[in-house]
Computed example of a mutant assay.
Amino acid sequence: MPGKVSILDLIRRRDTGTLKRGEIALISLLDIVDADLADFGDMDNHERLIRDLENASASISDEVFEYWTQSDGLAVKLHVLQPEAGAQAPLNEGPILQVRAENHRHRVSVPFDERSRGFVWFFSFLAYVA
């Protein structure tokens, strides 16, 4: 599952059938809370979207850490961002969905795809089959 994606690019590639496996897992994660990619463009429902993303983060984090015992005190967080100045395509087109792994013990978070390969695979697999 990628650590950061352009929602507009993800929608285009979903519609053309060119998604990568990790992106399919990300969409499956959003499906857990009935969040559609189109919801990200509707900033009138920003609070509902934040709530849905927090719910998805909590649900899948609880499930993952029931089985993943190598690192406790972790949580996966989903954030909606605007593109960074000078970002390369497709991350120059917002909104951007960022997935981060938060370590409560050290009080830091890192982009999801910078966690261990095993953790990224395991989390993505559970999101895909949930």
Rank of each mutant, 00 (worst) to 15 (best):
M1I: 15
M1S: 15
G3T: 02
G3F: 01
G3H: 12
S6Y: 14
L8Q: 15
D9K: 01
R12F: 00
R13G: 03
R13Q: 06
T16F: 12
T16R: 14
T18P: 01
T18H: 06
L19D: 05
L19M: 08
L19P: 06
K20V: 08
R21Y: 08
E23G: 03
I24T: 14
I27Q: 05
I27M: 09
L29C: 07
L29E: 00
L29R: 02
D31V: 03
I32Y: 05
I32P: 00
D34S: 10
D34C: 06
A35L: 12
D36E: 13
D36Y: 12
A38I: 12
A38L: 10
F40W: 10
M43A: 04
M43R: 10
M43I: 05
D44T: 11
N45K: 15
H46S: 11
H46L: 13
E47K: 05
D52C: 08
D52W: 03
L53P: 09
E54R: 08
N55W: 06
S57P: 03
S57F: 07
A58Y: 02
S59L: 09
I60V: 10
S61N: 06
S61V: 02
D62Q: 09
E63G: 08
E63W: 05
E66T: 15
A75I: 11
V76E: 00
K77Q: 11
Q82P: 00
P83I: 01
P83T: 01
E84I: 04
A87C: 12
A89S: 14
P90K: 11
P90E: 02
P90D: 06
L91F: 03
G94L: 13
Q98E: 13
V99Y: 03
V99A: 14
V99W: 05
E102M: 09
N103V: 15
H104C: 05
H104V: 02
R105F: 15
H106T: 13
H106M: 13
R107Y: 09
R107V: 08
R107I: 06
S109E: 10
V110I: 12
V110P: 00
V110Y: 06
P111L: 15
D113M: 04
E114T: 10
E114P: 02
E114F: 09
R115F: 04
R115W: 12
S116P: 01
R117H: 11
F119G: 00
V120E: 14
V120F: 13
S124Q: 04
F125K: 15
L126P: 09
A127I: 14
Y128H: 04
